[in-house]
């Protein structure tokens, strides 16, 4: 049995490394998706009114805007509110605003959207409706960064699955080869089993179970290492980044994703041993 330790160690190590690479990408994609969701929650549209829009027109315009599909809340920001907002943002440098008349600032509507509309595709539908209203001069919703970030997350997800697919093929190939080492280390026993008429299932099932357990163990170790890396990440954040990082939660994988990764490891281990057994456990 000691002879099986080395091939077992090699097989589990390969599964750990492969699953760790895949899990790391999953974790990065998970956190970026999470970040995108947080930002999407903050997505709102600012519709600037044309200069000269009378205060009488504001109330009916508010009602029209509120009735648009996807709109949740609309708030009117008068030039004075805008001035106060800018003063707050500038803080100690608010003296820069001295001499500027509030009337110079355009009044606007801050439009919050329903949850389903807080994404780069649906927001455009609301903007298209708003653009048809002639009293609006300009409509902003930070479209560039929303779209760029969405594309980034999409690419990352795509990379995750392409890499996952390649790793999957690689893992099956490597585990089946390393499991062949395990099988070879027991070839004498297998040959005698063949000789005395052991059924193929009797011979193969222990190897399938071994593959499943190796996959489970390898997947579990990969999750453990990823967890340690995740924890270590916070220990070594430079102080300059710490304040910035406080606003961005870096989460660990949720339990269901961990369960999928463990299951994936088991399936890979099983499939590797299945391929290996097809190649070297033929009755002869």
């Amino acid at each position: 049995m000691m002879g099986n330790l080395f091939p077992n160690f090699i097989t589990i190590s390969i599964i750990v490394i492969s699953m760790l690479i895949f899990s790391t990408f999953t974790l990065i994609a998970f956190n970026l998706t999470n970040l995108l969701k947080i930002w999407e929650d903050k997505i709102e549209i600012i519709a600037y009114l044309k200069q000269g829009t009378s205060s009488r027109e504001v109330e009916p315009l508010l009602n029209i805007t509120r009735l648009l599909e996807g709109v949740e809340v609309v708030r009117y920001v008068s030039p004075y509110d805008a001035m106060d907002f800018m003063a707050t943002k500038l803080g100690r440098q608010k003296s820069l605003l001295e001499g500027i008349q509030p009337a110079l600032l355009p009044p606007s509507f801050e439009i919050q959207l329903k949850k389903d509309y807080r994404n780069s595709t649906k927001i455009k539908e609301v903007v298209a409706h708003l653009e048809k209203i002639r009293q609006f001069e300009e409509i902003q919703y930070g479209q560039e960064w929303v779209e760029t970030f969405s594309v980034l997350v999409h690419i990352l997800r795509l990379t995750q699955w392409i890499l996952g697919g390649l790793l999957l093929i690689g893992i099956v190939f490597i585990t089946s080869n390393t499991l062949q080492l395990t099988i070879s280390s027991r070839r004498e026993e297998i040959e005698v089993m063949h000789w005395v008429g052991a059924s193929p299932g009797f011979i193969r099932i222990p190897f399938y179970v071994e593959g499943l357990l190796q996959g489970l163990f390898g997947g579990g170790l990969a999750i453990l290492f990823l967890f340690l890396l995740h924890q270590g990440f916070f220990l070594y954040i430079p102080p300059s980044m710490q304040a910035w990082m406080e606003k961005i939660p870096v989460l660990f994988l949720p339990p269901e994703t961990i369960a999928w990764i463990l299951l994936g490891g088991m399936v890979l281990g099983f499939f590797g041993s299945f391929v290996a057994s097809m190649r070297v456990l033929k009755y002869k």
Binding site: E188, E189, E191, V192, H194, W195, V196, G197, A198, S199, P200, Y283
Partner: peptide, 30 residues
């Protein structure tokens, strides 16, 4: 093939014994 082999006892020239087992274990293995 395993059903065929169960109908026969085979003694080969090279014995095909398990070297890491005892005499009884080798026979009991079958």
């Amino acid at each position: 093939i395993y059903q065929l082999r169960r109908t026969m006892g085979i003694v080969s020239q090279d014995f095909k014994l398990l070297r890491d087992r005892t005499v009884n274990e080798n026979v009991a293995f079958a």
